[in-house]
Design a protein around this nucleic acid. Sequence first.
DNA 1: CTCTACCCTAACGTTAGGGTAGAGTTGTTG
DNA 2: CAACAACTCTACCCTAACGTTAGGGTAGAG
Lengths: 132, 132
Amino acid sequence: MQIGEVAARTELSLRTIRHYEETGLVVPSARSRGGFRLYTETDVARLMVIRRMKPLGFTLDQMRDLLDATDRLDADTPLRADEREALLERVRAYQQEAAEQVEKLRVQLSRAEDFEGTLRARLERDAHADRA
Amino acid sequence: MQIGEVAARTELSLRTIRHYEETGLVVPSARSRGGFRLYTETDVARLMVIRRMKPLGFTLDQMRDLLDATDRLDADTPLRADEREALLERVRAYQQEAAEQVEKLRVQLSRAEDFEGTLRARLERDAHADRA
DNA sequence: CTCTACCCTAACGTTAGGGTAGAGTTGTTG
DNA sequence: CAACAACTCTACCCTAACGTTAGGGTAGAG
């Protein structure tokens, strides 16, 4: 499928999807003779994974690195034990960072809620002041 | 007080505080004869407000605009009724946007939690596979 | 053909700061 | 007063992750 449909399905912009290719994050599986990017279901799935990762604040480089690790772990080609351990260690590090980031997001959310509440309270106060 | 102490108290970097001045968001109340920025408690309070706003994803321009509106509403100089109404309308718009942003943060948080969980589950699975 | 809806590359713009260099300022000692 | 550490100044270049033109090429229906 071409980029437009991919964008619609992933809710990512065309520019974003092209950018992910530029940085080597998700390279379309093929091109049409005319040069159009052609994506498979697998490519789309990968984009969805990235979309879920985005709120965690990882850089594109980190995402590429992590996806690379899981891809290699899932591949059919068997790995040497030490290679496998190294990959798992990488994934563990990202999982740790993800957990920390989740904590930060919680803090942010509560700050945001707090601020929104303050703003609303203020507006209600001002509305009452109208009659003062 | 000078910029270093302000940075310590607000947990913002020197660079960030200077940047806020460049964009007219928080201009220090004074300068020393030698040119050092000098901040008052009020300035610090303003920086704290901004720090609370940050998670809402407003641009610095928007924050400046909003702070400007609330400042004018709080000022001692009386406003014409229509001016006051216009300012309130501006604040209302930002409150709306804040509420929307809170929703987005909730979505992001749940996606992040989800992803972190997936990653953790995956690691546990791989750990068990060790013994297989 | 030709039309329309898509898609392409290339390249500069934006936001919110980070980092650095080189020079000046403050407040404290001797 | 000089010397000095600690702090601060301006100016400038750098970055990530796209947004935004501009100027063209492509797919496929009619």
